[in-house]
Simulated assay, not measured.
Amino acid sequence: MGHIGFGAKYLNYTETEMNKMNIETVHPCRRTALLFGAALMALHGIPFAQTGSAATTRLVVPFAAGGGSDVVARLVADGLREALNETVIVENLAGAAGNIGADAVARAKPDGRTLLFTPQSPLTIAQFVEPKPPFDPERAFVPIAIVAQTPLVLLVNASVPANSLQELVAYSKANPKALSYGVPSHEFGFTTELLARHAGLSMLGVPYRGSGQAMTDLLGGTIQVLLSSGGAASAQLKEKRVKALAVVGTSRSPQFPDVPTTKEVGLGDLKVFGWFGIFAPAGTPERTVDRLTQAAIALGKDPAYAARLKQAGYEPMALDRAQTQTALEDHRNAWRAIAPRLGEK
């Protein structure tokens, strides 16, 4: 069975996003301390001072405005605002691959008014890469719900002589150095690594600062393979510039009804998928957590919310606290099994 060699170079590369706070010349340790300090100051009142009454609930997104997490968070905030009959706002605290915002929420008062809205990476992957997060991902939060997902679609450049995952595996075995794939984030890198190890693919990972440049290079043939979100994949598939070989998961995506799942092509034991969830700081009262979970689950089943998500390229989910905890454990176990080998060449 083959492996992908992105290794330590990829892990170090992605952490350079910390310089987005415009303090590039500060020593790395001092810079990280400043970033986390700024986030904590934010949650204790500086940017939030004018946001309103005590009945304001904040969804903290640990990534920049305009990205997928932010888009979904704002749809969720709109729905929760109605369900909870109170003000719900979105705050972006980006940096350190999501660790800045996640740590700020972990340290916030556990009263249900400051919540983390995030994809999986800060809570399931961060603990396996360097630098380690300043919070314990397994103890710092309590799950509320998973309320949305994005299809993860395995794409290849149209020139690659493979129309199925099985054909791609055969091609990679016959041409061991012919395939490279894009790594725009921890989540996509880890998921591709997992898929490749299960399928027996041999590829070389190429790190990117974001999905946009990775997609550009896929279209141009610089890389041959890319795991993509559904929204980004859809536009390129319509133009027939790429081919979709599989969707990661156990059930077909409504966005890609003709694309088989990884389960259908023989990788049925993959338990990972691209999700977005809501989490509260540890110590939040059970009654408050239950109230938030009920509102989130109702939202996940709301047809109007589903329609808005679909327009944005996402799909609704409604996983309760226990189901969300199971998803967390499934993903951590998957990453724990492969993380020690990510430095292989």
Rank of each mutant, 00 (worst) to 15 (best):
G37H: 14
G37N: 15
L40Q: 14
L40S: 11
L40R: 13
G45F: 14
I46L: 11
F48M: 07
A49E: 15
A49L: 15
T51Y: 10
S53G: 14
A54N: 09
A54Q: 08
A55D: 07
T56G: 11
V61Q: 10
F63D: 01
A64L: 06
A65P: 06
G68E: 06
D70V: 00
V71S: 00
V71K: 04
V72M: 01
G79L: 03
R81D: 01
E82C: 00
L84M: 09
N92I: 00
G95A: 11
G98S: 05
I100K: 04
I100W: 12
A102L: 02
D103I: 03
A104F: 05
A104M: 09
R107D: 01
R107E: 09
A108H: 10
A108P: 13
K109P: 00
D111V: 02
G112W: 05
L115W: 02
L116N: 07
T118I: 04
Q120P: 11
P122I: 08
L123Q: 10
L123M: 08
A126H: 05
Q127K: 05
F128P: 01
F128H: 08
V129C: 07
E130D: 04
P131D: 12
K132Q: 13
D136A: 10
E138R: 09
A140K: 02
A140F: 03
A140Y: 07
A140E: 02
A140G: 09
F141M: 06
V142S: 12
P143S: 04
I144A: 09
Q149Y: 15
T150S: 11
T150F: 11
V153I: 06
L155M: 00
L155E: 05
L155I: 01
N157F: 07
A158C: 06
A158I: 12
V160A: 10
A162W: 14
L165M: 08
L165R: 06
